[in-house]
Design a protein around this nucleic acid. Structure first.
Length: 809
RNA sequence: GCGGACGUGGCGAAAUUGGCAGACGCGUUGGACUUAGAAUCCAAUGGGCAACCUUGCAAGUUCAAAUCUUGUCGUCCGCACCA
C-alpha cells in the first residue's frame, strides 16, 4: 500500500465529512474530552516529542470514539512567550510575524499526522479574540480580591538594563552578556493562589492522576502545622517567627531575620548600622542561585538589638542571615542551635550559645539532634515527647498571648507581571489620583501594539510606546498611564481548555451551555515537567471561576497521563547543542505516518519513554504488510467447510483474548502491549490461514476484528483496508469489537506444579475444578510422585488456573 | 541536603499487582525458496556440558518476591537552607 497517497486521500475525506469534529448537536452519545497539552509554536519543525505526545493519544481518542463516545479532541497554540521576543531582539523579525508563520507550518505538520483534531475549535493565545478574555480573567480575579500588587524582586542585568527570567540566568550571570545579575524590587501583580492552598491540596485525593504528580503538588503546596511565636524587642518592635519545633523554644539562643525583612534596618543599632547595610547589600547582590545553594557558607550580621524569649524571659540577640528566606513563613526564625543543623553551623561560626533542650529516647544525644525526643530544661514541660510537647508548649504560648498553633504553606502567590512585549497586556490604568484602576470590561481588549522597540534598555518595551501608554483614567477621566507589563504566559494556558469548548464566542470567554456539556477534560496528556506550575495554575483558575459562578465543577482534568521523554540515541535529552536530534520527517517519508506512530507506540513504554533507536521500525512495516495480506486474503476467501472444530475454537479464543486485552491496554495507555496482543492475534490468523480447509465466515469475521482492533493505531491504513474489503462509511463509525466471554472459557488450563515451591512440571488440569481435586490431580502426576517419594503432604496451595504448590516433608 | 521514581537477556520491553520471569518484537544462528542477493517463510535463541544459576548488590517477611520491608550501590527527575 502506498502510504503517502492513502494518507492524503483519507485526510481529505475526513476533513470533508467533518469526521473529526465534535458533534455538539448529538445528545445521545456520552461526551469524551481528550486533551493534549497545546504546543508552543517554535521555529523548528514538529519533533519526535510532539509525535510521541499526540500520535498515541490520538489513537486513544479514536478508540474512545469507536467505543461509542462523542469525542472532542482539539488542538491549538500557546503562542505568547519569551523565545519569539528573543528571536526578535536577535534578528529583528517581529514576534507576531514569526509566530504566525510558525503556527502555519506546524498546523500543516499536525494535519499530516492524521490525528482527529477538531480544527474548528482551534485556539491561538496571541490572537485578540483570545487574549481579550485572558485580560477578562485578570479583571474577574481582581474584582474578587484575587489579584493584588506588591513589591517583589526580579533578576536584573545592569549591563543589558533588563529583567531576566530565571532561565536566562546562568550561574549567577546574564546569559547574554555575562554580567553579574542582581536582584531588584519592582511593584508587580500577583494572583492569590494561596487562598486556595488547602483546596488545591485536598482536591488531589479525588482525581485520577499519577501518584508521583500528586506527591509533587503536595510537596509544592507544602502544608505544615507549626507555631507562631512573638518575640518582643527592646525597641518595642515585635518579631513574629514561625517554627515547626516549638518544643525546642527553651533552647533559643538568638533570632534571625531575612535580610529583606521590614525590621532589618530598623533594628540596626547605630554601631551596627554600617555592617547591617553592607550585609543587606551583599545578600541582594548574591544571585538567587548562589543564595539558595547548600554549598554556600552560612553568613550573617548582628543587628545590635536584643529581644526577649517569651517563655523564659531570656535576653537574646537578633541577627540577619540570608539562610532565612523572606518568602517563607514570617521571614524570621528562632534559632535553636542544639536542634537544627543550620542554626548549629551558624552558632558555631559566630560563637553563640548552644543549649540542649531535647534528649534522645534511650540513647546518647549528639548535637545537633534534630529528631523528636524528650524535652529537658523546659520547666513544667520536661519529660514530654515530640507532638505531645509541641501541643503543650503551643497552648502555653497562646495563653501568654504570644502566638500559638499555625498552619503554614510553602506555596507562594503567583507573580504574573512580566516586563515583556510578547504577551497579553495587563488591563490596568495607573491614575495619579485613583491609583491602579482596572480597565472596564467593555473596553477590552487592551490591544498589544505592533510597532514597538524590543531592544532592551531598562524599560518594558510597552513603556516606550507613547500611544499605548497614554490614556485617561476610566474612573475620573484625568490623563493616566497604562500598566506597561504583560501577563505571564501561564495565565493564557490556565484556561485554554475552557475556550476550546466555545472558541468563537464574542460576548464571553465561553458559554455556560458549552462548558457544562463538554467539560471537564476526561483525559489530559502531557509532560511531567508541568506537574507544579501549569497543572496547579489551571486547577486554581477552575476553582476561582467556580466560586465566581462561571463553572460548576471543581477540577479541570479528571484523569492525567504523562508521556515519557524520547531521548536522543545517546541517552541525552534531544537538543541542538547535543547534536542528537532525531527528525520524524525522514521516517514518515519512508514508512508513512501510521507506521511511525505505530512504532512509537510499540517500541517504548508510553509513560517511560527512553533513548531513540529505530531497530524495530522495519518490523512494524512488515507487520502492517502481513495485516494487509491477511485481511485481503480473508476477504477473497470462498467455499471452505462449515464445521466448528478445535482449530476454529482456537482462533476464536485468540480473537476474543486479543479483543479483551487490547481494550484493557488501550484504556490504560499501555500501547506497547496492546499492539503485542494484536500481533499475537495476527499470528493466530496466519496459522489458521495456512489450513487447507477453513470456516470462511469465522475467518472473515476474525480478520474484520483484526482490522477494527488496529484501526485507532493505524488510522489511514485501516480506513483504506476497510474500504477495499467493502466496508461502508468510515471504519471509525464502526463499534470497537467486544469480547464474547464464552469464547474465553477453556476446559483445561496449564498449571505450574510445584513441590516445596520448586517447579516440577506443567500439567493441563480441569479449569473449574475445586482445589481438592486439583491437589489430587497434581499428586497423581508421575513427576510429582518421583519428587515426593514417601513424604507426606503437609499443605497445598492452589492458585486457580495458574499454579499448585505441594508442601511436603 | 530533601522528596519522587527507576535498575529485568546482546537490544526495546512484558509479567493478570505476591503466583510458571523474559509475552510481543529487534538482533543473532540454522534451514527452505532463489543463479545470486533483497524480500518472504520455517525453526532455535537468558546463562551453564550438567546438577543448577538468573530481575544492580546484601539481608528479611512468605508455601511463594522482579513485585512487600530494611540496608547498600548506581541512574534519572523535581525542589532547593521551608524554620
Amino acid at each position: 500500500m502506498d502510504a503517502k497517497s492513502v494518507e492524503k486521500k483519507w485526510q481529505a475525506r475526513w476533513e470533508k465529512s467533518k469526521l473529526n469534529e465534535f458533534d455538539k448537536k448529538d445528545t445521545k452519545k456520552p461526551k469524551y474530552y481528550v486533551l493534549e497539552m497545546f504546543s508552543y509554536p517554535s521555529g523548528a519543525k514538529l519533533h519526535v516529542g510532539h509525535w510521541y505526545n499526540y500520535g498515541p493519544t490520538d489513537s486513544f481518542a479514536r478508540f474512545k470514539r469507536m467505543q461509542g463516545y462523542n469525542v472532542f479532541q482539539p488542538m491549538g497554540f500557546d503562542a505568547f512567550g519569551l523565545p519569539a521576543e528573543n528571536y526578535a531582539i536577535k534578528t529583528g523579525v517581529h514576534p507576531k510575524d514569526s509566530t504566525e508563520k510558525n503556527i502555519e507550518t506546524m498546523e500543516g505538520q499536525l494535519r499530516a499526522m492524521g490525528a482527529m483534531f477538531d480544527w474548528s475549535a482551534e485556539v491561538k493565545t496571541c490572537e485578540e479574540n483570545y487574549y481579550k478574555w485572558t485580560q477578562w480573567m485578570f479583571l474577574q480575579l481582581y474584582k474578587h480580591g484575587l489579584a493584588y500588587r506588591k513589591e517583589a524582586p526580579v533578576n536584573w542585568c545592569p549591563s543589558c538594563s533588563t529583567v531576566l527570567a530565571n532561565e536566562q540566568v546562568k550561574e549567577g550571570a546574564c546569559e547574554r552578556c555575562g554580567t553579574q545579575v542582581v536582584r531588584k524590587n519592582l511593584t508587580q501583580w500577583f494572583f492569590k493562589i494561596t487562598d486556595y492552598a488547602e483546596e488545591l491540596l485536598t482536591g488531589l485525593d479525588d482525581i485520577d492522576w499519577p501518584e508521583k504528580t500528586k506527591a509533587m503538588q503536595r510537596n509544592w503546596i507544602g502544608k505544615s502545622t507549626g507555631c507562631e511565636i512573638e518575640f518582643d524587642c527592646e525597641s518595642g518592635d515585635k518579631i513574629r517567627v514561625y517554627t515547626t519545633r516549638c518544643d525546642t523554644v527553651f533552647g533559643v539562643s538568638y533570632v534571625v531575620l531575612a535580610p529583606e525583612h521590614p525590621l532589618a534596618r530598623k533594628l540596626a543599632t547605630p554601631a551596627q548600622a554600617k555592617a547591617v547595610e553592607e550585609y543587606i547589600d551583599y545578600a541582594a547582590k548574591a544571585s538567587e542561585i548562589d543564595r539558595l545553594s547548600t554549598a554556600r557558607e552560612k553568613t550573617g550580621v548582628f543587628t545590635g538589638s536584643y529581644c526577649v524569649n517569651p517563655v523564659n524571659g531570656k535576653r537574646i540577640p537578633v541577627y540577619l542571615a540570608d539562610y532565612v528566606l523572606a518568602s517563607y513563613g514570617t521571614g524570621a526564625v528562632m534559632a535553636v542551635p542544639a536542634h537544627d543543623e543550620r542554626d548549629f553551623a551558624f552558632a558555631t561560626k559566630y560563637g553563640l550559645p548552644i543549649v540542649k533542650t531535647i534528649e534522645k529516647k534511650g540513647g546518647e544525644t549528639e548535637l545537633p539532634f534534630c529528631e523528636d525526643g524528650i524535652v529537658v530544661g523546659s520547666i513544667e514541660f520536661d519529660g514530654l515527647f515530640g507532638e505531645e510537647a509541641r501541643d503543650a508548649i503551643a497552648a502555653h504560648i497562646a495563653k501568654l498571648g504570644k502566638g500559638g498553633k499555625k498552619v503554614n504553606y510553602r506555596l507562594r502567590d503567583w507573580l504574573v507581571s512580566r516586563q515583556r512585549y510578547w504577551g497579553a497586556p495587563i488591563p490596568v490604568v495607573h491614575c495619579p489620583q485613583c491609583g491602579a484602576v482596572p480597565v472596564p470590561e467593555e473596553e477590552l481588549p487592551v490591544r498589544l501594539p505592533y510597532d514597538v522597540e524590543f531592544k532592551p534598555d531598562g524599560k518594558s518595551p510597552l513603556a516606550k510606546h507613547e500611544k499605548f501608554m497614554h490614556t485617561v483614567c476610566p474612573n475620573c477621566g484625568v490623563e493616566a498611564l497604562r500598566d506597561p507589563d504583560t501577563l505571564d504566559t501561564f495565565v493564557c494556558s490556565s484556561w485554554y481548555y475552557l475556550r476550546y469548548a466555545d472558541p468563537k464566542n464574542e460576548s464571553a470567554p465561553f458559554g455556560r451551555d458549552s462548558v457544562d456539556k463538554m467539560l471537564p477534560v476526561d483525559t489530559y496528556v502531557g509532560g511531567a515537567e508541568h506537574a507544579c506550575m501549569h497543572l496547579l495554575y489551571a486547577r486554581f483558575f477552575t476553582k476561582a471561576l467556580r466560586d465566581m459562578g462561571y463553572l460548576d465543577f471543581d477540577e479541570p482534568f479528571r484523569r492525567l497521563v504523562h508521556q515519557g521523554v524520547i531521548l536522543g540515541p545517546d541517552g541525552n535529552r534531544m537538543s541542538k547543542s547535543h547534536g542528537n536530534v532525531v527528525s520524524p520527517d525522514e521516517y514518515v517519508e519512508k514508512y508513512g505516518s501510521d507506521a511511525f506512530r505505530l512504532y512509537l507506540m510499540f517500541g517504548f513504554s508510553y509513560t517511560e519513554g527512553g533513548p531513540w533507536n529505530d531497530d524495530g521500525i522495519k518490523a512494524i512495516a512488515k507487520f502492517m504488510d502481513r495485516v494487509e495480506k491477511t485481511v485481503l486474503r480473508a476477504h477473497a476467501c470462498t467455499g471452505g467447510k462449515k464445521e466448528y472444530g478445535a482449530e476454529e475454537k482456537a482462533l476464536d479464543y485468540a480473537r476474543n483474548f486479543a479483543v479483551s486485552r487490547v481494550t484493557r491496554d488501550l484504556e490504560a495507555f499501555s500501547f506497547n502491549t496492546a499492539i503485542a496482543r494484536i500481533m499475537e492475534f495476527l499470528n493466530a490468523l496466519s496459522k489458521y490461514d495456512a489450513l487447507p480447509e477453513k470456516n470462511v465466515p469465522l475467518f472473515r469475521a476474525a480478520a474484520k476484528d483484526l482490522l477494527l482492533l488496529l484501526a485507532p493505531c493505524a488510522p489511514h491504513f485501516c480506513e483504506e483496508l476497510w474500504e477495499q474489503t467493502g466496508g461502508k462509511g468510515s471504519v471509525f463509525e464502526q463499534s470497537y469489537p467486544k469480547e464474547d466471554p464464552e469464547k474465553l472459557v477453556l476446559d483445561e488450563k496449564e498449571y505450574a506444579v510445584q513441590v516445596n515451591s520448586k517447579i516440577v512440571c506443567r500439567a493441563m488440569l480441569p479449569a473449574n475444578a475445586a482445589n481438592e481435586e486439583i491437589e489430587k490431580c497434581a499428586l497423581a502426576l508421575p513427576e510429582v510422585q518421583d519428587r515426593i517419594g514417601n513424604q507426606t503432604v503437609k499443605k497445598c496451595v492452589v492458585v486457580p488456573g495458574r499454579l499448585v504448590n505441594l508442601i511436603v516433608g
